[in-house]
Design a protein around this nucleic acid. Structure first.
Lengths: 142, 142
DNA sequence: TCCTGTATTAGAAGAAGTCTAACTTAGGAA
DNA sequence: TTCCTAAGTTAGACTTCTTCTAATACAGGA
């Protein structure tokens, strides 16, 4: 297993690693983690009780801008942050409880036909599968 | 051209078509329209000045639940509503100005591998291409 | 040590959407 | 007609999530 975690990647960056930023980065560990800002704050607080909400948001936004953190939008509810940016993957989202599951991207990357692109510069593709997670499917689905 | 517009589709439904609901539906016309709730309210107001925000939101939510209206989430900024639900298509979203462009879905539908699905019931797939629209690419891109 | 720019903080403010309670309306029953 | 009921509408309060602001703290270089 050679996945480089967020914290080690950040050491190689020209980015001041304060105690607060470290606390945020330490919490964003694992390949299948999709935390809300609130959850990150909660967890970071257990390492550094005085860390503020604004700092958590600032840090998350910076990490996203640096490309070190992904964002998953589940339509309902708050944004989720995904530290697993080292391999392309897609998301299964439960329409009921908003659980997210990672799925490897096996299909060939979809392409936009040249004539449909109309001058648009395409830099990325997101595939989101929607449906019901096992729990919600058992409870409400068929 | 045989695209059935939203309003005609609604006539075939068991759904009371009040003046307010009609105003909302009349505004959601066209195959490449992605309005925010605020924009729908604004336009509906020009037909029915006393229509309230709550009614616009209620109506939009009902139409979405009925499957007669699509939702596009652009991560930043408000949700957009897309009356073009009669043909599968995907979206190109500008990361800077949040413009949306429809693209026909030409690729085969991506599939989730059985072993990655893990009991998840998949009901739909959304493909979102991200990048810069022509205007923003000219201004900021390379 | 001083200086400068970056980070952090609490709390206010903003944006988007939902909820509440009162009011209106339409249609059916008596 | 008059009454009744259920559905629809309304203004405005409220929630939730995120960003902004202004004050303060801090770190590293001159």
């Amino acid at each position: 297993m050679t996945t480089t975690d967020l914290l080690s990647r950040l050491r190689g960056r020209d980015w001041r690693l304060s105690a607060q930023r470290r606390a945020v980065a330490e919490v964003l560990v694992g390949d299948h983690v999709h935390l809300t800002a609130e959850e990150v704050h909660e967890l970071a607080r257990s390492r550094l009780p005085e860390i503020s909400r604004a700092t958590v948001y600032n840090t998350l936004n910076e990490l996203v801008a640096m490309g070190e953190l992904g964002v998953v939008d589940v339509v309902d509810g708050p944004r989720r942050y995904d530290p697993y940016v080292t391999a392309h993957h897609d998301h299964l989202v439960c329409d009921r409880c908003h659980t997210i599951r990672d799925v490897p991207r096996t299909t060939a990357l979809p392409q936009v036909a040249d004539d449909a692109r109309g001058g648009f510069l395409v830099t990325g593709v997101e595939i989101t599968y929607r449906g019901l997670c096992p729990d919600c499917a058992a409870r409400y689905g068929r």
